[in-house]
Amino acid sequence: MNNFNRGKLFFIKFLQILLSILFFLALVFIIKWRIDSLYLNSISSRKVQISIIDEFTNTANEIFIATGLKDEKSVKPIVALDESKEKEKKESDNTTTKITVPEGTNVDELGEILMSKGLIKDLNAYKTLVDDMQIGNKIVPGTYDLNKGLKVREVLAKISNTNLKTYNINIDTGATPADVAKTLMENGVIVSQQAFVDSCNNLGVTAFAPGTHEILMPSKVANIIKSLTKN
């Protein structure tokens, strides 16, 4: 019994010492984190903040270098988050730009307008999306105030007065084109089951990837079919 009590007391004492050491190390780490943050702010013209993960990685690398386990040249410098840059990016995304779409503007001309305003970056990708959304003949003339943070699909939807919808469609294992057509029809994704089945036949598609698929509409039937065959 005495041996048991002595063992119990030793274990409790050991835990107390271990917790004290861990508390001390945590305190040292927090102080070092604060000092590193103050140092970076003292040499920067903008407010910067070091994440706790970056500080932990940096501290571990310093220990490895000091013990010779790592070469200093192989260690990347600590990455600091520049809050002002993040703020500038968010403000940039929230800024609006005004564009004017003249009467009779075609797809190519609209692309040039959007490119000049920084609303698109790739004309070929833009034309592919216009074709997929089937809005080439739906361009509505007028003046638009567009947020620069909008996706290209959202920009095109506004200019063509098109409603965007997202559908989550579940495809069962072994579903046939007719089965999928029925599911899509019931969810309002397509307007003709037979047209969908015919498109599958033309593309040589007989099987689909089981699971839940996200479908962005409007979209061409051929592209819907392709998206449903991908895992």
Results as ranks from 00 to 15, higher is better:
Leu119Gln: 01
Asn124Asp: 12
Ser20Tyr: 05
Ile120Trp: 00
Val48Phe: 06
Ser227Asn: 11
Leu150Lys: 06
Ile35Glu: 10
Asn58Lys: 10
Asn58Ser: 12
Ile139Pro: 00
Thr105Pro: 00
Asn41Arg: 04
Asn231Glu: 07
Ser199Asn: 15
Phe11His: 11
Lys165Arg: 08
Pro177Val: 08
Ser74Glu: 13
Thr59Gly: 01
Thr57Gln: 05
Ala157Glu: 04
Ile171Gln: 01
Phe29His: 07
Thr128Tyr: 03
Arg46Met: 08
Lys32Tyr: 15
Lys70Ser: 10
Leu110Glu: 02
Asp145Gly: 01
Thr183Glu: 11
Ala125Val: 12
Thr96Gln: 13
Pro141Asp: 13
Val152Ala: 00
Lys158Val: 06
Asn3Arg: 13
Leu228Thr: 02
Asn124Gly: 01
Asn161Phe: 07
Ser37Asn: 12
Glu83Phe: 15
Thr128Ala: 14
Trp33Gln: 13
Gly188Asp: 09
Pro77Arg: 04
Asp54Glu: 12
Asp71Ile: 14
Asn3Asp: 07
Thr229Glu: 11
Glu186Leu: 04
Asn170Pro: 00
Val48Tyr: 11
Asp172Leu: 10
Asp172Phe: 09
Asn58Gln: 09
Glu88Gly: 03
Ile113Asp: 01
Gln16Arg: 08
Leu150Asp: 01
Pro218Asp: 13
Leu25Asn: 07
Asn5Lys: 14
Thr57Leu: 13
Ser92Arg: 14
Glu112Phe: 06
Ala209His: 03
Asn3Ile: 13
Asn147Pro: 00
Lys32Phe: 12
Met217Glu: 06
Asp82Ser: 11
Gln16Trp: 07
Ser116Asn: 15
Gly111Asp: 03
Gln16Glu: 15
Asp71Leu: 07
Gly142Leu: 08
Gly211Pro: 04
Lys127Cys: 02
Leu184Tyr: 03
Glu55Gly: 07
Lys47Phe: 15
Lys32Val: 08
Asn223Cys: 01
Trp33Ser: 14
Asp36Trp: 13
Leu81Glu: 02
